[in-house]
Amino acid sequence: MTAEATPLTVEELAALMKKAAGVTVDPQDLQSRLDSPFAEFGLDSLGLLGIVGELENRHGWSLPTDAERCRSPRAFLDLVNGTLTTGA
């Protein structure tokens, strides 16, 4: 991980959902429903695993193994951004 790691934003998560899982979500809708289950956006566990893989490849660091089990966008963002701050 580089020293310049920046937090994952809702907009970036929406773009990753499209790129890695083929799920199109409006970032504003995602922001307003951060505690809704990923399933409500059409994202399943395999799609989330694709997002985890994309982030790991992009940044060169591993996310905790429970990242693919996050149930909501807020939980995922909190986990990813917490990992960035702790330097995992």
Rank of each mutant, 00 (worst) to 15 (best):
T24I: 12
V25N: 01
V25S: 03
D26A: 02
D26V: 02
P27F: 08
P27I: 08
P27K: 07
Q28S: 15
Q28H: 14
D29P: 00
L30P: 00
Q31K: 12
Q31L: 09
S32A: 12
S32I: 01
R33Y: 00
S36V: 09
S36N: 08
S36R: 01
P37I: 02
A39E: 15
G42I: 10
L43S: 09
S45N: 05
L46Q: 10
L46I: 13
G47P: 08
G47L: 03
L48G: 01
G50S: 15
G50Q: 11
V52C: 13
G53I: 15
E56V: 08
E56W: 11
N57V: 14
N57E: 15
R58F: 05
R58K: 13
H59D: 13
H59L: 06
G60N: 12
W61A: 14
W61F: 14
W61T: 12
L63W: 06
P64E: 12
D66N: 13
A67L: 10
A67C: 10
C70M: 15
C70N: 05
S72E: 08
R74S: 01
R74E: 02
F76D: 05
F76Q: 06
D78F: 00
L79V: 14
V80A: 08
G82D: 05
T83G: 10
T83I: 12
T83F: 09
L84F: 09
